[in-house]
């Protein structure tokens, strides 16, 4: 029974980590239709921001939850002002530009931090469920995922800013006629998406050995999750994270990690063949 609890925690953790990794991309791609191929590198920058902050004596929670999102959010605004805003509506050009950006960020990180592995230890000790041990940090990631989803829902559905943002995405001309500047709304949305990517990077920094190329480990999973989720930002994110997280983890626990990864990719291919517009094109339609 305790073992089942441990496995359940691992499955929840897999789902939560997909939510954390993909939330920034869900905002940027789901709302703005901008394909940010530098999403993984934004996470990498968040990770390095956390490690640098911790090593210079800042409390690890402040480093992960505040420093990393702000650093990457500001980076996002600069990128949006310099590159992305000139390319709205030009999907392929944005992909090319952000791909170039990702290479630039990897290069810069290699120059500054060296092409080598750095890391910090997780701040939460493990604890026992019955006779088994779980990683306390897994619970922290699960809590963080829930908090991110609640905050996204609260902002989008409950605040005027969220309403304006959704309005400006649907019909920029109308938003503009009503006195809202779509340019400003885009910029702030991109800031929010980037800050979420930075937060994800910060949250994962204590779990991994960080290298400048770590972004490539995330980008594929994040895209698969967001694209399979479909048009609804939150419902799509949750439904595909649950599907992929649970599948890959169940296969990992039953067989090997390799099979788990293959199962995730297979189910994504089959899903996109059946529902090319994503899960929320058929289920949970009209959800947020």
């Amino acid at each position: 029974m305790d073992l089942a609890a441990i496995f359940a925690v691992e499955i929840l953790y897999a789902i939560a980590s997909l939510v954390v990794i993909s939330s920034g991309l869900a905002v940027v791609f789901g709302m703005m239709r901008v394909i940010n191929l530098a999403h993984g590198e934004f996470m990498m920058v968040g990770g390095y921001a956390t490690i640098v902050a911790v090593k210079s004596g800042i409390n690890i929670y402040i480093a992960m939850l505040i420093v990393a999102p702000i650093v990457v959010g500001v980076l996002g605004v600069i990128v949006e002002r310099l590159i992305i805003r000139r390319l709205y509506g030009r999907l392929v050009d944005t992909m090319l530009a952000t791909w170039g950006l990702s290479l630039l960020l990897i290069g810069l990180a290699s120059m500054i931090f060296g092409n080598t592995t750095t890391g910090i230890s997780p701040p939460i000790p493990g604890f026992a469920i019955g006779q088994y041990q779980v990683n306390g940090y897994s619970f922290f990631i699960i809590l963080a995922a829930v908090a991110i989803l609640v905050a996204m829902f609260a902002v989008l559905a409950g605040t005027r800013a969220g309403l304006v943002a959704r309005g400006a995405m649907q019909n920029p001309a109308m938003a503009s006629a009503l006195g809202y500047n779509p340019e400003r709304v885009y910029m702030l949305t991109f800031f929010a998406g980037s800050a979420l990517a930075g937060l994800a990077g910060g949250l994962f920094a204590p779990l991994l050995g960080l290298v400048p190329t770590i972004g490539s480990a995330y980008i594929a999973k994040a895209f698969i999750t967001v694209i399979s989720g479909g048009a609804s930002v939150i419902a799509g994110l949750v439904s595909s994270a649950v599907l992929f997280g649970a599948t890959s983890q169940i296969f990992t626990l039953a067989t090997t990690p390799m099979v788990g990864e293959i199962a995730l990719l297979l189910i994504a291919i089959v899903l996109l063949r059946l529902l090319p517009q994503g899960i929320t094109s058929r289920f949970f339609r009209g959800a947020m």
Binding site: E10, T117, L208, Q249, L253
Partner: peptide, 30 residues
């Protein structure tokens, strides 16, 4: 591979007396 959470759960399920890692490189250090 740098995330070993599910593996650690699996190891506990098998309850061995000894774990022998023959892991290589920076990511495996996790």
């Amino acid at each position: 591979v740098a995330d070993f959470g599910s593996t650690i759960a699996k190891i506990q399920g098998a309850a061995p007396d000894i774990v022998v890692p023959a892991l290589v490189g920076g990511p495996h250090l996790s």
